[in-house]
């Protein structure tokens, strides 16, 4: 249980009040309605305090930078890909998400973080693309290139919810810059996300409050870490609706947008 100004409050209320502190200080925090992974921008995260009994609301950079990356230049090469001196292109390595099933495998970059530095990523909602293959008017067969529709996904009746994450302290060895970066854990899609994110059939590991704080503060066995990391949030408690294809440029990126040709999602149970 948390105290704010000496009064006992729930964790959720504590987080809301802490969020208001940041907003008042003109600190760009949860005020951003849309966090796009490939912008590698700061994001609000709950991090366990050093004593291990409580947590802080901090900002971390989304996009896990492994400790072997020496400086920003190397981090950018990892994130965006690059051509070496011989003209050979090295594709990007994406560290926005960590696959739950592989989290603790030996030599995985997320292993130590999953054992020692778990965090909770605060979210108001996220988006994913639904891929459809309508019948071609010319051939009568499904088109080869998918038509993509963006969806906004959130948790019903919850202004904020928790995604499981792992974080990594990182220092640029050239400049001394220190940042904390994180990756969001993903799990197999539930029956709702299976319809929305139907190209990859994955979803972020969204945790209810009891599991969220066990993930953040608990002294967990490897088995339990994997169990929580693979948790599938109940689809009936989630909401998904289509949004405009140019939502990234919209004033309200989460505004619903109806497409006449878009089949409705089947009710998720």
């Amino acid at each position: 249980m948390c105290y704010y100004n000496g009064v006992k409050v729930t964790r959720i209320e504590y987080i809301r009040l802490k969020q208001l502190e940041k907003l008042i200080a003109n600190y760009d925090f949860l005020s951003n309605p849309l966090h796009v992974g490939f912008e590698y921008a700061p994001h609000p995260v709950l991090k366990k305090q050093a004593e291990g009994k409580d947590f802080d609301l901090v900002q971390m950079e989304w996009g896990f930078i492994p400790s072997y990356i020496k400086d920003r230049d190397a981090a950018n090469k990892m994130r965006f890909g690059y051509k070496d001196e011989q003209g050979v292109f090295h594709p990007m390595i994406t560290t926005l998400n960590a696959v739950s099933e592989e989290l603790l495998q030996p030599r995985k970059i997320y292993r130590q973080a999953a054992l020692q530095r778990r965090c909770l990523v605060l979210s108001t909602g996220f988006y994913e693309w639904r891929h459809l293959f309508p019948l071609s008017k010319k051939t009568g067969k499904p088109v080869k290139t998918a038509v993509k529709y963006p969806y906004h996904i959130s948790v019903k009746d919850q202004p904020y919810f928790f995604m499981a994450g792992v974080w990594q302290p990182w220092t640029d060895q050239s400049t001394g810059e220190y940042v904390e970066t994180f990756a969001i854990i993903t799990t197999a899609a539930n029956t709702l996300m299976d319809q929305v994110h139907n190209s990859k059939r994955r979803m972020p590991t969204i945790l209810p409050e009891d599991l969220a704080f066990e993930w953040l503060l608990g002294d967990l066995s490897e088995e339990r870490i994997l169990e929580i990391a693979r948790y599938q949030y109940p689809p009936a408690q989630m909401a998904a609706y289509s949004i405009a294809k140019d939502f990234r440029e919209a004033i309200d990126p989460a505004a619903p947008f109806v497409y006449e040709d878009l089949p409705v999602l089947q009710e998720a149970l």
């Binding site: 009064v7 006992k8 409050v9 209320e13 208001l20 008042i24």
Partner: peptide
């Protein structure tokens, strides 16, 4: 700056 909050 003040506001109302809800206790536990």
């Amino acid at each position: 700056v003040i506001t109302t909050a809800t206790g536990s």
